[in-house]
Design a protein around this nucleic acid. Sequence first.
DNA 1: CAGTATCCCTTATGATACTG
DNA 2: CAGTATCATAAGGGATACTG
Lengths: 225, 225
Amino acid sequence: MGSSYHQFCPVAKAMELLDERWTLLIVRELVTGSRHFNELRRGVPRMSPTLLSKRLQQLVRAGVVDRRTDGPNVQYVLTPAGEELRPVVEALGAWGVRWIGELGDEDLDPKLLLWDMHRNIDHTAVPNGRTVVEFTFPDAPTKSRHWWLVITANEADVCDVDPGYEVAVNVLTDLRHMVEIWRGDRSWSDALGAGTIELRGTPALRRGLPTWFTLPAFASVPRPA
Amino acid sequence: MGSSYHQFCPVAKAMELLDERWTLLIVRELVTGSRHFNELRRGVPRMSPTLLSKRLQQLVRAGVVDRRTDGPNVQYVLTPAGEELRPVVEALGAWGVRWIGELGDEDLDPKLLLWDMHRNIDHTAVPNGRTVVEFTFPDAPTKSRHWWLVITANEADVCDVDPGYEVAVNVLTDLRHMVEIWRGDRSWSDALGAGTIELRGTPALRRGLPTWFTLPAFASVPRPA
DNA sequence: CAGTATCCCTTATGATACTG
DNA sequence: CAGTATCATAAGGGATACTG
């Protein structure tokens, strides 16, 4: 646990738990719906598993997370106390998207982007059967230039190798532009109009694609003038 | 500045700035209205001035705080971006007061308590002229057992030595109980009824005293059943 | 009042490899 | 899948004293 501030103020008491590196990002992952250890890892890929494990234990001890085991099965679930951290995460997201606009190249992780998109798919909007979306980031290093999202009725998988299925739509854009759309810094239609992003596929599928994804909540936060 | 999470998520970007030790407590102080270096210090007494200075510089660089100089006079003021951290601080306070109830003895700092009370006085409720409130914490070590609040029309001073003026009301209670009232864990009337706190003075002044202070915002947050 | 200057030292955490 | 084990480094930060 973080060391004490020696203050009775609830802000200080809350931060004793929450100001440690990574902690609130794990809460964010849990709020987003991740439950399994390796699922959480994908949301915080730069964190060592040792540290993730330690943080989860701290959150359990703090009463924020419940660790449920069912045989070999392990789940991490937010307690009521943890669930009430959602407004904190949302407030931070809203603030961050308004006031920390500048992203470094270091912040642009295609794997993280695809991971995030894959769990925000509106399956009711995607055509029936199997739909494959290919992402091509011409500016990315060779090995992280191509990604595939394989979407079925109630699942979606991220691939960094060609799964071999027919591609419905190919999304061509610089990684940064795709991230900007995803964060709500720019709308699909703006980016398409400006030509910073290109969709390849049948007109119907190209028109449909932007509706297949539900942008994160903070994307709709109005930006400062 | 805190090191990068290498994530484009605004929660992560926000936390790169805010998850460093003390940072959000300084923001809390600024939100509360403190402007001067030594005024801020009193709100985070366990922080070394070097570190406070460093944090303030970080906040200035991040565009959250504006450092204004007028000759020898220095003021730290929240920018619009900083002002918008208020909801974050409030969300943390509301969460903390609901879910981090247990205070260690280490968290009970009488100086901090008096400092916090002194800036939350409703001067319109206090009798005209000079009003002195003495606090006696029988459980505290000798040197921090007695405190005085000297309230005048538009000022209030905290003293740890008897200022010599006539005392209007003497508040007698364990430090912990006073903190509980201040945090809203318990109401004045509850505590008075239970006898965990005692007021000495004329009936009118004793009745009036609870109205002289405006409890912090989080005090009114409903607690979990 | 508004900070700097040092100094030491713990401990947090990144990196990597490994296990049931 | 769900973690543990180990290690070495950096640096974060506490304490204290001092200055214009």
